[in-house]
Every structure is written in structure tokens, then in C-alpha cells.
Design a protein around this nucleic acid. Sequence first.
RNA 1: GGGGACGUAGCUCAAUCGGUUAGAGUACUGGACUGUCGAUCCAGUGGUUGCGGGUUCGAGUCCCGUCGUCCUCGCCA
Length: 613
Amino acid sequence: MNRYSTHTCQELRTSHEGETVRLSGWIHRQRDHGGILFIDLRDAHGVTQVVVRPDRDCFEETKHLRVESVITVTGKVCHRPEENINEKIPTGEVEVIVDELEVQSSAEILPLQVADENDVPESMRLKYRFLDLRRESMQKKIMLRSQVIASIREQMQTMDFMEIQTPILTKSSPEGARDYLVPSRVHPGKFYALPQAPQQFKQLLMVSGFPRYFQIAPCFRDEDARADRSPGEFYQLDMEMAFVEQDDVFEVIERLMTHLFDKYSDWPVTETPFPRIPYREAMMRYGSDKPDLRIPFEIQDVSEIFKESDFRVFRSAVEQGGVVRALPIPETEGQPRSFVDGLEAFAKENGARGLAYVVFPKGGGKLKGPVAKYLGEAELEKLKQLPGCGEGATCFLLAGAENFVAQLAGRLRVEIAKQLDRFEKNVYKFCWIVDYPMFEQEEETGKIEFSHNPFSMPQGGMDALLNKDPLDILAFQYDIVCNGVELSSGAIRNHRPDIMYKAFEIAGYDNSVVDKQFGGMIRAFQFGAPPHGGIAPGVDRIVMMLADETSIREVIAFPMTPGAEDLLMDAPSEVSPEQLKELHIRLELPKPKKQKNAPQKTEPGTSPSSATS
RNA sequence: GGGGACGUAGCUCAAUCGGUUAGAGUACUGGACUGUCGAUCCAGUGGUUGCGGGUUCGAGUCCCGUCGUCCUCGCCA
């Protein structure tokens, strides 16, 4: 007989009656009736009730075992009497009458309960993650993650993609997020960087003649966390294809996403092809480049209506080159005053001076709202006719500079949907955001910068770079978005050195900078590079959506806190002086801050390249 | 770095307008019980109300500071 188990804790049925079996697992719950002891024994597969009777040697010892102790029991499978069947568990018709019980590992008093999935502070869960992971909900999520990753590999292989590993210790690159640096022992004063993504390597693989590459790739970025963004590290399905256009990439990803979301969720998924929304249109209609299409209302431009309005606030906004945008919300007439007050406070927190709105009562009664009296009949009627507006609706109005208004209206749209719970439920709404601008102007300095990825091919190629206003040039750059979560960015890459140099020149970098920072890639492009493009969906985010979670940490086995700490391993930590010496590093720590605005005196010892934004 | 919310027993929460000995569930310890399955019943242990200061006759409650946690903005090629 196997030393630890003959069956799992979810296998036994009435057909096993009379067999002598062995089970190992954790004590999930214990019920002590004095003369008889019931233990729910749990393993990764399920729970089986085992019964200890007082005539067994182990009876007294067993009574004092705490939950979550690990035991091995040997005994006979018995059919439970009709009245004692537990229909809640698959093994509920049987139980194991214990002959022998071996304690493999006894448990201390638990800092958090495994069997009761009550709320526990996340810091506690992370510190005792090994206990937290035992809970059924976490087991399911980690299992789901495993299956999703397996399916991704299977699908990608089926579509003739090759999985290829790329280096983890690599070169710091000046653009993008802050790098995690690794000091070199062999080369004093030099550092490796952990890759923010295998971007350059995958492009090199295209040049190397592997036309379909993928990798479940760890990515490292030293940036602050969000609910849907893990600090430090995360995983991407990194992929790249040679001799493709944008639609070819879309087709592969749509096929993959549809497969994953159909397989691992019951919710309906957007039919392929997913809608393609140009960036500027997304900013107009949703005030965001990751629009949540489950929200049934949209932003509308009403600058025309107010161009010659008597209401000076709106008119002057338009005259000064700004815009007026409307966000009509149907069926809100009955909302309490606190609704609009709360939203006004929200708008102010986000930098607005105020929040104008008009309520159109049902039956055509007197209009409500602070600006109603300043607006003319014709203007009000036009607002009322807007799609989504009309009787019973509240029409919010925002005026000012276009980018600001668009963004604020977008945030307001999501906030209102949250407050009124107006999301379409149990559905996955995908879309592509396409036609990102190649460059953007930094507001303070007026400097032209890459708006997304410097490796994207500008639409129109060299001709566009030479002849168009940089701010009008679009890139073959795209995002895929699901329910307001950005799953991925990608692009058709710029594989032409001449176009690359020119693009960087527009962003203010001369050729030598390009050669220095991206020398490997530029050199590769001079020896015959195929046109190529790709994308890199976030694996954690995909699993998060499939698990219907809003925090990415729920689908990562050992996540860091938003403060970039691992509470279980206690990382980051100090290292020994010997280790530092070997790495040629001397610490210069900031003063412990006592009062506010403590003067910053420390400068990084070396600053190899000036990081752009 | 900025803003917001929160912080009471190991954990989840309660405590009237600032009022007298800070309660309950769970966990833990002991006891009772031979058919439970979130077992039940009895008893017990467990608290510097995050920390520091202030206001007050009196502070878990009000004020200031600080620390921690989460959310968010900046940031995320």
C-alpha cells in the first residue's frame, strides 16, 4: 500500500465500500462528540469525512490535533446510513472509519482561518500566503491560472508559434519605466537591467528568421502599483510575427482570446472581429483609451451648440480653442441631491472648477440644475435631443481644454456607472484601440516625444515623417481592451533604420543616441530585417478577468504589496557589507525624514543615461 | 511625491451626543456529549482601542502629528 495515499480526498464513492484505503491531507474541520470524532480531511482535490471511534489507540491524541495539521489515515470505506449523507460534498455518501492515524505535521494556532473564508487584511494574507493559498477560492484561482497558461501554450503552438526564452539579465534602456538594476561584480560600476519586456529580443528573433515567436515572459518595471498592476514583476504573453500587417496580429489574438474566454468563462464574449476604435474617437466618446464598453452611455461633443451661447463660461471655452462635452445619463431624474453633489466633488477633486448639469424632468416639467437658467431654449432643446438624453435624464456638461475635458468626462462616466451600478453584467466586451498618435507634445516644455513606443512604424512611413506635422502622424500602434482593462499594447514595428533614425530625430535624439541605446537592434536591421509586428497581452490581467477579480494580486501566488514588498520572504532586505563590497557598491542613504520636506541631498552615484520621462 | 478611506482581542465586527468595568462571533484552552458535517452546550484565556501629543472633570469617540494598510493621481517605451 502506498505510504501516504491510495486515493485522493475527493475520489471515494459507495462503489469503494468495504475497501481499506489510505488518505493524506489537512484537517479541514473537526467535530468532537466525546464518544466519536469526525474529521473533514482535505487535500487539493476535495474533502472526505473520516471517523475516529474511541476504541482506537489514536483517539485521545487525535482529539487534540488542531485544524490544518497534516495527517495520514488508514481505514475502511463505509456507506453512510441514509440519514447521515452529506449532499454538499461529492464524497458525502461515504466515510472512512479510521484504523490507524499518523500525524505528519501538527499545526500551530492559525493567524488566519482556512476553512472559514472570512475577510482578512491583505497584509495578513500576504504574510501567511501559504495558508491563504490553501483556501478554496485561492486554490481555484491558481488552478485557473495554470490552466490558462497551459491553454495559451497549446493555442500558440497550434498556430505555429515557437516558444523561445530571452535573457533576464540585460541592458538598461533609457525609455519607458524605471529599470530594476543588477550590479555587475565582474564589471565594476556597470549594471544589468531586468527586462521591462523582451521587446528588442523578440524583434531580433524576427531578424533571426523565427517568424512566429512567443513566450510567457516575466517583465520587470520599477513603477508604483495599481489594483490591476502588480509592482515589480508580471507576466506577458509576449508574441511577435514576421511579414504581417496589423490585421494579421489581430486575427491571432482574437482567436486566442475567444478561445480562452469561451473555455474558462460562461459569460458571452464580443464576437470577432472585435470593434476597432481609433484612439481619437475613443477619447471623444469614452474619454479614455481603455473604454469600458459595458457602460451604456457616451460622451458627446456639444461645442457647436454653445459656440454662440449667452452662457459665457461655455462660449469662452470654445472661443479659446477648448470644447464643451455632454454626458447624458438616462433615468436619473429621481436621484437625490447628494448624487450630483457627490459628482461635483469628484469633478473638483479631478481638477474641475465645477460641474454643470441639467435635469430634464419627465412630462416636460421645469428644468432643474444650476445652469439651466443660463441656457437658451434652443440650446436646451438640442441637448435634450442628444442620443441618450431626453426626459428623465441628467445631462452633465464640461467645458475647457480638450484633453482635460475628455479625460474628466471619461472618469465621470466610469464613476457614474459605478455609483448607479449601470454596467452590463456578466459579459466580456472587447475592443481594439487603433491609430495612436506617433508623437505627442509634452505640456510643460512643448517638447515632441514618442507617445507610446519608439519602435512603432509610423503610418505613411518615411514620407509621413518628412512631410507631416509630427503631431498628426499616426502609428501602427494598438491596444486591446476588455471591460475597461488594458490587456495589451502592440505595434507593427519599424524595421527600417532610416525611418528609425528619422523618428528618433523628431523626438530629439540624434543618430548616436540611437546607436548607443539600441545598437544591437539597429545593426540587426541593417542585415535584412523582415517587416514584423506583435503584441504582449498581460497574463495576470487575463486571469484576473476570467476569475472576475478586480485586484491582480488575487491571481498571483506570491505577489508583492503595492508598496513593493514581499511580506512572506521579507524582501527587499539589506545585504551584508561583504556582498556590497564585492559589487563595488557604497550606500548613500536618504536621511530618515523627521520633519516634512526634509532636504534631499543624495544623488545617485551614477546616472548612466538621462531617462526621458 | 500628492489626494482619499480605514486602523478596537490572533481574525471579523460592535460600543448612543464625549460618560463610569470596551462587548459579541470566530479562533484558542478546559469540560459535557456516540452521527456530526459552519456540530451543540458550559466555563475560561485573550485589549497600552496602531503610536505620540493636545483639548476635557472624563477620550475608542474631538483636534494635531506620526506610522501602517488599501484605493487613487502622477508614473506605467
